[in-house]
Computed example of a mutant assay.
Amino acid sequence: MEMLKKYLEELIDKSTPERPIWNIEKIRSGEKPTWNYIDGCMIKAILEMYAITGEKKYLSFADAFISYHVQEDGTINAYHPEEYNIDNINAGKVLFELYDLTGKERYRKAIDTVYEQVKHQPRTSEGNFWHKKIYPNQVWLDGLYMGQPFYMEYETKFNDKKNYADICRQFANVEKLMKDPVTGLYYHGYDSSRQAKWCNKETGLSKNFWLRAIGWYVMALIDTLEKMDKSYEAEYSHLMSNFKEVMKAMLKFQDESGMWYQVIDQGTREGNYLETSGSAIMAYAILKGIRMGFLPEDYRCYGEKAFYGICDKYLYEKEGEMNLGGICLVAGLGVPDSRDGTFEYYISEPIVENEAKGVAPLLLAYTEILRTQK
């Protein structure tokens, strides 16, 4: 899979902090670069490539990219904690690694800057973080990935694990409130106030199982577990069991290509398609789950089938340059009203190429394959 390494290096060569080529949302909007989760996903993958290969160019790029946003006093350019946007916590995860690797105090200070948002993030009546201030009382699966791994790593390293119970309770609430008992899949969103137009007024749930949302959720589980002290046996075991159950449920819907559909349980319904980002996340989660001892070795065939299935279908070379297609650009709930959680909505969002939400998890899955080869 040297072609994937070549692809990453092409993306790095074309990117600067001012214009990362993989952030299609920013490029399309014409906005200046900000502190955002999309770049956070990509830099995380680049740092994993450094961890596996030891090639300094990856660390140098990641360090320069994040240093562009983080000032010496730990303030972060264009980051507004008072927006209470859980997405903005995600990029904070790379600060821990960069602090360990470089020793730069700006990163340690910036970790505290991001943690201030965690401390004050508004919560639902059940105790879960709001997804955003503009989405009051709402929990989206995406938000578990954006916030909880950072929260867990901070508690483990810098806060004497004081809020472990809070983190585990938030996952438990999602399992209780958002899991479908029939399929074992999870609905994209939950509104504790039952006010959102997209939610069921009795359950508070959105209508469908969106692939990348469940992908974010399984990554949230395994990445949070990775940062957790195993001596908290009951809590650790429960999160691990949750991870194993959702992975087992997802395997029932894996297509013969190795991939999964954009709306997971709707298969070949007209308009539905095999989607790259969520399938790549599943490949990563399966392979990492095996490495961490959560999943049996016989799951490896499913993870590798997903990885190679994506590469076969959507990774291609054109005019000497690599491209990755089949990536849903974005999907959400609420504003505008067209984001109503219906099947028709999820298949209507743009499908793009070379976007970090697809590229980063495919690279993460690749690093898991490289680990086994070593």
Rank of each mutant, 00 (worst) to 15 (best):
M228T: 14
K6N: 12
P20T: 15
K318I: 08
L4D: 10
L59G: 05
E72D: 12
W140Y: 10
D87V: 03
Y299N: 04
Y145A: 05
P350R: 04
G147V: 05
P181K: 12
C168S: 14
G127C: 12
K109L: 11
Y232W: 12
I89C: 11
L363S: 04
L98V: 10
I76Y: 04
I21V: 15
D340C: 05
F243E: 07
V182N: 14
D160M: 07
M3I: 10
A172K: 13
G189C: 10
N354Y: 07
E353L: 09
I38F: 00
S231I: 13
H188A: 09
L315G: 00
K133R: 13
Y284Q: 10
L98K: 06
Y302L: 04
I66R: 00
E153S: 10
Y190L: 15
E202Y: 06
L315T: 02
Q121E: 11
E105T: 04
E116T: 13
M1V: 13
D180P: 07
A62Y: 03
H120A: 14
I134G: 00
Y346T: 03
T372I: 09
N200K: 05
I89G: 05
M259N: 08
G325P: 06
R339D: 09
E105H: 00
E82P: 06
Y261V: 10
K161I: 10
M322V: 11
L295C: 01
K357C: 06
G215V: 03
I290D: 01
K5I: 12
L141S: 08
D298P: 09
W216R: 02
H120I: 03
N77S: 13
Y302D: 09
Y302I: 01
N23F: 14
N36D: 13
T367P: 07
W130E: 03
W130Q: 07
K197M: 10
M42C: 08
L362N: 11
R212E: 07
K119F: 03
G267R: 14
K176N: 12
G40K: 02
R194M: 14
R194N: 12
A220Q: 01
I167T: 09
G40W: 01
A360D: 09
D229A: 08
E25C: 01
I12S: 05
T268K: 15
M282E: 10
E355A: 15
V94L: 04
G271A: 11
Y236H: 13
I66P: 00
E321T: 13
Q195P: 00
W35T: 03
A360R: 06
M152K: 03
G54Q: 12
N200R: 06
W260I: 03
F209P: 06
W130C: 05
G267I: 06
Y217Q: 03
K93L: 13
L370D: 01
L11F: 13
A356K: 07
V139D: 07
K157Y: 01
L177G: 00
S192Q: 05
I264N: 06
G358M: 03
W35Q: 08
L221K: 08
G127D: 12
E317W: 01
S193E: 09
E297K: 11
Y99P: 00
G54N: 08
C41L: 15
